[in-house]
């Protein structure tokens, strides 16, 4: 079974993250860049499926040059090869353009049975790319999964949302997105790290994928960020002294906030 895993390099959630003043896009210099944790889980799921069913795992990432670090991490976990779409023109791309580029990149991989993505990136948090991608590729979308199994040419998954759990089934090939409950990703071993250095990574531009540069990036985006303001500092909160009526005071507060 040949699997494509989509990965993204994001600012480390452990560091301070901000947007640039110039065009309100992500300030990539301000924070350490890491492989998005949700993508580590996507890679892990792909590797587990590969261990059970065989085939090849290809990593696809769209991002600036330094995204090679995130790609190398996915390869050191055990993925076989990677495609890195890197192009100045992609700067500021929205979810539609991103999905378009990824769809073309997936098209360059032969006999893809399954595309696995994280359900949403920890930076943009749009959570829309897997679904748009499935539409563009004309494949069933089996998103927001906490569990994935493959039986023959059928993929089964458990989609967990606030409303409950849905049990889904689709025929392969399909596009899957996974949530943080899907698995615990492995840490790369030193053997894996060294092996990753020898694995093939092909770097392509949007032109290589047959996409016009005007369709992507900030200029090709359907939405525009007009303004961005930092989150206001958290206020000190309200202190409730318990003089025997602490419970009802808390209840009153919660009622006031329309929480109960």
């Amino acid at each position: 079974m040949n699997i494509v895993v989509l990965v993204k390099q994001v600012p480390d959630t452990w560091s301070e993250r901000k947007l640039t003043d110039a065009d309100h896009t992500l300030d990539r210099e301000s924070a350490d860049a890491v492989l998005d944790e949700i993508n580590e889980r996507a890679v892990e799921e792909a590797l587990q499926l590969q261990e059970a069913h065989g085939g090849e795992v290809t990593v696809i990432a769209m991002g600036p040059d330094r995204a090679t670090d995130a790609i190398r991490k996915a390869l050191s976990m055990g993925a076989d090869k990677a495609i890195h779409v890197s192009d100045e023109a992609l700067h500021g791309s929205d979810v539609l353009a991103t999905a378009k580029v990824l769809a073309k990149a997936i098209g360059t991989v032969e006999n893809v049975d399954l595309v696995i993505a994280g359900n949403e990136a920890t930076d943009g948090r749009a959570g829309a790319v897997p679904a748009i991608l499935a539409e563009l590729l004309g494949l069933p979308q089996v998103t927001q999964l906490r569990k994935v199994t493959v039986e023959g040419t059928t993929i089964k998954g458990e989609r967990e949302t606030d409303e409950g759990v849905a049990f889904l089934e689709a025929s392969l090939p399909a596009v899957v997105s996974v949530t943080e409950k899907i698995n615990e990703p492995r840490y790369p071993s030193f053997k894996g790290i060294m092996a990753a250095k020898k694995k093939p990574v092909s770097t392509v531009t949007v032109a290589d994928l047959g996409i016009d540069a005007s369709e992507v990036g900030l200029s090709g985006a359907y939405t525009q960020v007009l303004e961005a303001a930092p989150k206001p500092p958290r206020s000190a909160g309200q202190r409730v002294e318990d003089g025997g009526d602490g419970g009802s005071k808390i209840a009153e507060f919660l009622v006031g906030q329309k929480l109960i």
Binding site: W14, R72, K73, S76, Y187, P188, F190, I193, M194, A196, K197
Partner: peptide, 16 residues
């Protein structure tokens, strides 16, 4: 060298 740096980062993350 990059493979040592990657190992260092991996263990840093694991320890954290």
């Amino acid at each position: 060298p990059s493979e040592y740096e990657d190992l260092r980062k991996t263990v840093e993350e694991f320890a954290r």
